[in-house]
Every structure is written in C-alpha cells, then in structure tokens.
Write a protein that binds this DNA or RNA. Sequence first.
RNA 1: GUGGGCGUAGCCGAGCGGUUAAGGCGCCAGGUUGUGGCCCUGGAGAUCGAGGGUUCAAAUCCCUUCGCCCACCCCA
Length: 419
Amino acid sequence: MYRAPRGTNDILPADQSYWRMVEKVAAELSRLYGYQRIDTPVFEDASLFVRTVGEGTDIVEKETYTFEDRGNNRLTLRPEGTAPVCRAYIEHGMASLPQPIKLYYFAPIFRYDRPQAGRYREHHQFGCEALGDLDPALDAEVIGLAWELYRRLGLQEISLQLNSIGHPGCRPAYLQKLVEHYRAHVQSICADCKVRLEKNPLRLLDCKEPGCQHIANAAPTMAGYLCAECREHLEGVQSNLEALGIPFQMNHRLVRGFDYYTKTVFEFWPPQEGAQSTIGAGGRYDGLIEALGGRPTPGVGFATGIERLIINLKAQGVEAPTIGGVQVFVGYKGAEAKKAAFTLTAELREAGVAAVLSTGDRSLKAQMRHADALGARYALILGSKELAEGTVTLRDMARAEQRSVPRGEVAQELLRLLA
RNA sequence: GUGGGCGUAGCCGAGCGGUUAAGGCGCCAGGUUGUGGCCCUGGAGAUCGAGGGUUCAAAUCCCUUCGCCCACCCCA
C-alpha cells in the first residue's frame, strides 16, 4: 500500500477548517499592516540557500532536498522562506520601488529531518518580510504582526523571546570572548559543544546538556559587546514593543540557525513544554540581500509554522469555524423522477444553492439516512406524485417538517430559507 | 545520523502459543407498501506490517526488515 512519504502529511477535509482559519487571519493582518502576498517557486537554485542560510549549517549540510533536473541544474526544495523572497526582490528590481517593500507568503517548506512531534519533512510557513529599511519600528511591527496573529487566533500565554546578536562589525569581538570563555572549560563541555566551539560558537549558548548549562550561564553575553548602532537599534525595538504593549523577555542565549541574521532575533514560545516548541521566529538580516548580489539592503522578517500553530490551537482547545457543508440533498423515487432530480440539482447550483444529488439508486429510506449523515439542512424529494403535480417535496431536516412546493419555485424558496 | 516505544478491519481496540481472530465506532442493507436522526436485526470489511525461524500448533516466542510515534541533533 502506498503511504504519504515519511514526514509528509495529508491535510484531510476534517482539518481544513483550521488551515482556512489561520490563513484567513494571517491574510487579513497582512492587509492591515500593509504587506502584499508573494509566491515564489517551490524549488530554487541550490546555491541560493548555501549562500544565505550558511554553508556550515545543519540545514544546508544535511537537511536539504537537493536534486539535479534533466538539464543538469542543481535545485533545492525551499528549506526556508526568506532567501527566495530576497532573490525575487533583487530579480524584479524592487529596490527601485518605494521602500520598504513589505511581502508575505504561505509556502511549503522542506527539510530532510527525522520527523517527530511538530516537525515534518514538509511543513508550511506563513511569513512576512520588510525589505529596504533599517528602522527598528519595522522589527517591532513584524513582531507585532506575529503577536497579533497568535492573539486573534486565540492562543494563550505565548512568550516572546528577544535578543540581539550584533552585526559583522561587533559580533567577532564578542565571539572571541565567548570562545575564550569556553576554551577555559573545554574539558567539561559535551562532545557537541566541542564541535560548536570550532564551527558555530554562538550555538554554544543554547546547548541543553546540564553540564554545559552553567558554563553557558557564566559566559559573556552579546549585550555587553554590542556596538553603539546595534545597541541603539535594540533599544529602539524594545521601546516600540513597549509602545505596543507587547511583553517580551530578553534572552541572551537566544540564537538562530541561519547565518544571515543580524541584530534582532526573536522566537515565540507556547506554554507547553515540548521538544519542538517554537511556533514562530525571525529576525533582522541586513546583509542577506547584498550576499545575494543585490545592493546593500536591510531586511527584517518572521515566519511561523502552520502545523505547529494548529497543534497548539488544538492543545488549547481553540475550535475552528466549520466550513460550508451540504445545504440541500435531492432524493428521488423511480427512474423518471431521477432524471428530473438530476436537472433540478443542476438548477439549484446555478441559483447558488449547494446541492447534492442522491446516487446509487438506493431506497428512499437509505437516501434520507444519507441526507442526515451529510448534515443537509433540507431534503428535496421527487417521486411519481410530485412529477404528476409539477411539485417538489421540501423537507426541513432539523424540524422534520415537509411541504409541497411548485417545481418552478423551489430554487427561490431555498435561497430564501437559507439566507 | 543516534537512542527508545509501538505495529490486529477505514478508526479505536481485546486476545499474548492451541478449534471458524472479541467488542465498539463508522459503512451497507432490512424492520412491508415513498422518508433521516433513537432502537432492533443482518451484512461487508483483517493474508493479525512484511520476510524468515522455533514448535505437533504462532496474531501470540526469536531474528531480520519496513513503517509509525517519541526523544537527541537541528528547527517553524
């Protein structure tokens, strides 16, 4: 038997209400904040992500779906949403439009990971990016959009974690101090941290090994080494968040998995303990567009995992409004009536009534049972009697009442009843 | 890539060496002549994940393999 590939999921009709709800709220907020939708290809030139996400990162090293097509192009299934948007910004000359450019997207994301709770090989993200402006108001705006998204969806007790990781001008000095601190304890840190010390010192800070925790706690913090520009930027973000009334927690151990981040980084944590807990994250990436060959252009954005969002909505008992459903079920008795029922159903749809025709030539009893199972609000019945009279029997399923309606008036009558 | 748990009909789930593999939900059909939701009756649907082994006998024990789940790494 075929199964969906490991780490992928079918989004069944029963779950669609949550997806529609998230998309609807996110799209409405994007509109309110002045963000426009962009859709980029599912795959990109493989090197795009190497140059942006970072060569040494796990994502590029071992988690991308990279393949060669028949034209010998090396392509990668999008492992994150920001780089493609920046590529599009450059490619379409958006730098010559009024800045900042504000874009949002819903996109499938692919990472070759071992699946576990809340982590999939294909998942979906809603994200937004503000490109071409370094005002800390934009950092706060992006954070505010995310915050408002969670609030409107009904998520409770979301914690905003905030940090600044400096920029290429001031970070190296800090990293040097950090490395010095760890070198002094190198014999007591875990094997992973020994690798991090060489490859990606910032990651040392979020090691979860108990033995490494106190070393990380005692480590110098980036905050102490921020240059004036980065410090002012951080203060700007903080004061803007305060102006919005958004509580945040400074987290000096917060780092991000991509190399392109500068200054502001943040994550949203739900209250539940769990391995894959972060539901949204983002930050500023002032060097990214330049790294892709564009003119030096600042940017800030965030993305949220829709699957993780929905997991948390369900965990908190948030229900999604049900969508659609059958309004009218059309049943019949006899071959002659079936033909009439078939055309009547078409007429109803033409009039804008969601109608389902009974199929399979079942007994009327079975048809009614089916109408009930479908949740139809009304059932229409056509038989020899109705055919002779030129009428249709209209049954209100909830009230268990029915009456005869002239065939020509059924559609209008149903529209009136369903209004 | 590493570690742990689990795999019985569409779903939940009993059975844990011995005749035709419970039960519930769902599905289908009946309960007289053209009608639902409750109730009653019946039916369809399972090579017990797959392969191999042990045994007179295996869904039940052993090995292998695949899959799912959880955790690590990492990440939304």
